[in-house]
Amino acid sequence: MEAEKTGNNTGLFWKLFTAPLGKNNPITVLVLGICSALAVTVQLESALVMGLAVTIVTGFSSLIVSSLRATISPRIRIIVQLVVVATLVIIVDQVLRAYAYNASKQLSIFVGLIITNCIIMGRIEAFALANKPWLSLIDGIGNGLGYGIILVIVAFFRELFGSGTLMGYQIIPESWYIVNGGFYENNGLMILPPAALIVVGLIIWVQRSFYKV
């Protein structure tokens, strides 16, 4: 691919890294990896952990598959990729259970679902199989972060308007609430699953008007 021809230079690294954050965002533009993305966006904290976990898995699976790409027999290509991804996901899951128990409880099955996250297989197939390991690592991390950013934006709005908190800390002053004689009430709809879809739809609207895609 073109990345091979231009070789290694900082500009290329930078481009690979930043494109997925905005213009080529995996969620809003390429529409990949939405499956596990939305269910974990009720709270900002779990969205951050999920974004980080996915970034680690996309980065390293791209790195590993790209290093192995000359040796993989085409007949077992998909299985090898799945095994690499699944192994990384299990390691991430085990580490979360040991060092971030609460977050792993909240994410429950969605950690396991990182395996079937289309972003990971998508980047491996489209990029890592044809490019050098370091480039693939950067590409993987960039895409993971692009995914994480959308998660965090969605979670920001859902937690702020749904529970009045951010990262668990109260943001909306207690005295505003109707129960305390104020005028404000949390929007219960934001906590429910469908709100995530509507928020993502609106983000896509904003982003596409901005980039004129």
């Binding site: 040796t71 993989i72 027999s73 007949r75 077992i76 299985i79 090898v80 095994v83 192994t87 299990i90 390691i91 085990q94 580490v95 259970r97 040991a98 060092y99 128990y101």
Partner: peptide, 27 residues
């Protein structure tokens, strides 16, 4: 293909059981 698959399984199995046993007590 066969050798490749076997080697892969051995590497993966070792990595996973090491992680799992290493983190078990903490979990």
């Amino acid at each position: 293909t066969f050798l490749y698959a076997t080697a892969l399984v051995v590497v993966v199995a070792t990595a996973l059981s090491l992680t799992a046993t290493g983190l078990k007590s903490r979990q």
